[in-house]
Design a protein around this nucleic acid. Sequence first.
DNA 1: TTGAAAGCGCTACCAC
DNA 2: GTGGTAGCGCTTTCAA
Lengths: 334, 334
Amino acid sequence: MSDIAALAGVSASTVSRALAGSSLVAKKKRDEIMRLAREAGYVVNTTARNLRLQRTETISVVIPLAHEVSQPLTDPFFVEMLGYLADAITQRGYGVLLQKIVPPMGDWLPNLVASGRSDGVIVIGQSTEHQVLEAVSAYYRPLVVWGAPSVAQSYCTVGTDNTVGAQRAVEHLIRLGRKRIVFFGDPSLPEIGLRYEGYLAALENTSRPLEARHIVPAHLTPDNAYAAMTELLQQNVAFDAVFAASDLIAISAIQAITAAGKSVPKDIAVVGFDDIALAAHSNPSLTTVRQDLDVGARTIVDRLFDRLSGGEGPSATLSAELIIRESCGAKLSY
Amino acid sequence: MSDIAALAGVSASTVSRALAGSSLVAKKKRDEIMRLAREAGYVVNTTARNLRLQRTETISVVIPLAHEVSQPLTDPFFVEMLGYLADAITQRGYGVLLQKIVPPMGDWLPNLVASGRSDGVIVIGQSTEHQVLEAVSAYYRPLVVWGAPSVAQSYCTVGTDNTVGAQRAVEHLIRLGRKRIVFFGDPSLPEIGLRYEGYLAALENTSRPLEARHIVPAHLTPDNAYAAMTELLQQNVAFDAVFAASDLIAISAIQAITAAGKSVPKDIAVVGFDDIALAAHSNPSLTTVRQDLDVGARTIVDRLFDRLSGGEGPSATLSAELIIRESCGAKLSY
DNA sequence: TTGAAAGCGCTACCAC
DNA sequence: GTGGTAGCGCTTTCAA
């Protein structure tokens, strides 16, 4: 900057003001300084600027990978969400600092917050880190979590209405005549737990009692889900439908079912959750509960910037929409 | 930090040294200071540290989205690569600053470089930005690009052997008895261009002349690819195989072919490129050319850190492996 | 409208 | 082994 000051024959203060577009500097001089800077390829040093201004114009996006130990970011859901978040954050002129963490990691959040690397933190999915989130939110405001709200929770969440979404999906399967519906996913994760509640609610609402309830607590990785479904099929458990806690494992389940010589949806109907881009393009195309990640990401970022400027917006729940495609089949006749 | 110094009854210098684990500070005092810092929840301020040290311990990862205007990060390939990169970078104790750019954007790279936000830059895919990369690499060393090397190029690339990979895939289709093989992708992008060359090489190597050559310059988005394939099918062009430039569009093509009442692989064989996680789990499972992104990402990061410490490692080309699954079918009999 | 000077929080040089 | 001090590059008072 002092170089540019020398070039322009003014002080560094003036260059700083000019580059910031301050009207304190005469328009003509300002334009001249900007031209000089551009020609010299000069760009303000972000680190120094940040130190002085006590902010970073950067948001940390944290992805906790609960069960995907040492795995790369593989779930399309995270990725799509990340993409939308990156868009929304970039649009506000902020940078995105990506943090992948594999719990349990102890002090990751407090350390991240205290390091001053970012002005705010977004956590995609509570994973198994509810306690940590709770603790940090007690003193750190600019924190927003994608996931499920819970009764006694002090941190701000944004998430889809998991319970209602799941309930709609399962009710649809019941309406189509399916009788033995497997819940495929691990309810110990907060969001999946709510989906499980929706599943139970749907089963309880039917007048005709269902013959069995199954739950297969598969983790959210394709290989895991494939293996779990293969095992279920070998156990000779009778079922004619699967409600999967995510599209990714739904697609793996379909693959496993097909490999076992059964047909989807004829023998077994499958419904997923998320509506990732692939759901529409898999074969058969996947009936699923749509989470609007575009709106979700924008809501997260809105909430975060609101908190950044002192606001206290409440947690948000987005509505879930059932998208009917091929994998649930048509109504069965008796 | 001065707070901790006061607490410990020493100077800030000593705290700084202790927290850095310097052996200049007596072990006992060092441990005491560390304990105090932990209890106080004190973490060194990264911005100040970076300014002082003239480095950021951060790597920018840039994803240029050529044709996916205003779209979120949607391609699983980018996402998987990003995940592996994040792993490799994190392992070295560096942060990942994510930058999504939609060309043409003019000075994005020079500005990014000059802003000092990161110590190095990784660009995933050349997209349409070859010129920009070339220009910046003339003065900025810590830049590594995933993509295709070209003859007169001064920037460092790491990429799969696109030509050989594509050639193997197409040769396999020919060996299986397929005669009219469509190239599905846009060869104007450097990497796709090389894959197209491999396609041509395979066609030229056959003794039995092929009856036709087709190229459908579909962009790399699923919707685009689906539409392009649907249109091709409507045009009544005769073809019995498709070599798609990416798995993502291969899967869309399969979807379109199936929707049009034809069977994959019976009527039309399909081969993709990338071997994204989904390729093994789609239905039918996808024959494809595997790019080893784990190795690729590690190579990129190795190269980058080499350059960071003054090295000048050459561009790297990784071998491509043909993964045979269901979508290419078995050998046709005559 | 401009410049001088202070200071953001840290590390590393120098002296003790 | 330890403390004082300078300075990383910037923005912003304060004074002119």
